[in-house]
Amino acid sequence: MLAQQSLFDADRVPKGKQVLWGYCHVPNGSTVDMTNAVEQQIERFAPGFRDTIIDRHIINTAQFEAYNPNYIGGDINGGVLDLAQLYSRPILSVSPYRTPANGIYICSASTPPGGGVHGMCGFHAANAVLKDIK
């Protein structure tokens, strides 16, 4: 998957230049270098792309976990979000944000509704806190 944000937000780059942002899925924890595969796929639909590259910055799953310790094995979703785990992360509960310890809560992407920039895990966790302490 690719995005070329600087095409629509020119202040992100020097005049006449672009940043191309992209990723591909790999098995959890894989550190296989996917650069060539990704660039070949782009070339398939945009021949000549490779000749335009000034420089690359590549992040593999291990580096991603070092950058953000929540990304175990590079997983930005905080654990597989399949049918079995949709509502059961980190544990199966009507209030998954509460832990058994009084006053300790979890609100990350490892809680419903899961990964993505929407803040809804945090919002629901906050409401659980408010119910408990008000």
Binding site: P69, N70, I104, Y105, V129, D132
Partner: peptide
């Protein structure tokens, strides 16, 4: 009164 972790379970 409350400590909330925006972290993984780990």
């Amino acid at each position: 009164k409350a400590v909330i972790f925006d972290t993984g379970p780990k």
